[in-house]
């Protein structure tokens, strides 16, 4: 089923002043239930503005947004409830963690939804399990956690509201490589187990290519490319023109194909590249598709 539809959405900051900036230009977008979407673009491309429209924090200057068939700008539409359905986790967990314990902090969202203390605790319990935060940290102060654990606590705080779509704004910023992989694996597992739609905002093509089924590339307030990672990275020259880069693998495979090797230039992940190169060299490997390359 169609989860969200954005129809000719425009957004202008500081309209009618000298500082007027059109942050979103005619965005048309359909998001289906259960999709795993990567949203890429450099700073100022409009991706942060876009995700704040999804849960109604920002209101489009013109255009409409439909959530499960209902116009969220309709009079009488409960936009506060929408924030529970479109769970938005901002980049810095430090901006939302405030309670004395992690557990109490995760209860904050469900309590705002009007749930009883007991129900809120049930939600927190499930959410903390879902993000894989070890129980020993649940009653610590959120300020004592490491970067990766803070991130998990923050995601749990939004998950506890039982959203239908989870939007994560650069969940790996500032984490070390292992921490980054752990968080992304956890998000992928979460997507698998709950079937909830996930939108992952990121700077890193490598990260996104590995996980998502659909990639959106934004530039100067518009959606420039929309497709599977393979389709999008085929346009690697366009990506470069807007200051982004495709994964290293894409460059390698194109170079090899150009030099006459029979490899698949559209391979986007390490695993695909490896298989394709081995095949070109006639070393057919036992295909072990689920092999973990991190």
């Amino acid at each position: 089923m169609m989860l969200m539809i954005l129809d000719h959405v425009n957004y202008i900051y500081s309209e009618k002043t000298a500082y007027e900036i059109q942050a979103l230009k005619d965005i048309n977008l359909k998001i289906e239930d259960g999709e795993f979407i990567g949203l890429i673009g450099h700073t100022g491309s409009g991706k942060s503005t876009l995700i704040q429209h999804l849960n109604g924090l920002l209101r489009a200057t013109s255009g409409s947004i439909y959530f499960q068939g209902q116009d969220i700008y309709d009079e009488g539409y409960n936009r506060k409830e929408l924030r529970g359905k479109v769970g938005l986790v901002f980049q810095y967990p430090e901006h939302q963690l405030f309670e004395t314990t992690v557990f109490a902090d995760v209860c904050f969202g469900p309590k705002n939804q009007g749930l009883s203390e007991k129900d809120a605790q049930m939600r927190a319990y499930t959410a903390l399990h879902e993000v894989g935060l070890p129980e020993e940290y649940w009653y610590h102060s959120p300020f004592e956690l490491s970067g990766g654990q803070k991130r998990r606590a923050a995601i749990a705080g939004v998950l506890a509201m039982k959203p239908e779509v989870l939007v994560l704004d650069e969940p790996t910023a500032g984490l070390d490589p292992k921490g980054r992989d752990e968080i992304l694996d956890q998000v992928a597992a979460l997507h698998q187990s709950t079937g909830m739609a996930v939108i992952l905002v990121s700077h890193s093509m490598e990260d996104v290519a590995k996980y998502v089924g659909r990639l959106l590339v934004m530039s100067q307030g518009s959606i420039l490319l929309d497709g599977t990672p393979r389709e999008v990275f085929r346009h690697y020259q366009e990506l470069e023109a807007i200051g982004l880069a495709a994964p290293q693998v894409t460059y390698l495979m194109h170079e090899l194909a150009q030099k006459g090797l029979a490899v698949d230039p559209d391979a986007t992940t390490l695993g695909e590249a490896k298989d394709s190169i081995l095949q070109a060299f006639g070393k057919r490997q036992r295909r072990n598709r689920q092999e973990n390359y991190d």
Binding site: Q52, N55, L57, K80, R83, G84, G87, L88, V89, F90, Y92, H95, Q96, F108, G109, N112, Q113, G157, V158, M161
Partner: peptide
């Protein structure tokens, strides 16, 4: 600016 961001993060969690 930070106040603005924190406010948004908490609004996203249903704060009022």
């Amino acid at each position: 600016e930070e106040t603005d961001k924190i406010m948004k993060a908490q609004l996203a969690r249903g704060a009022d």
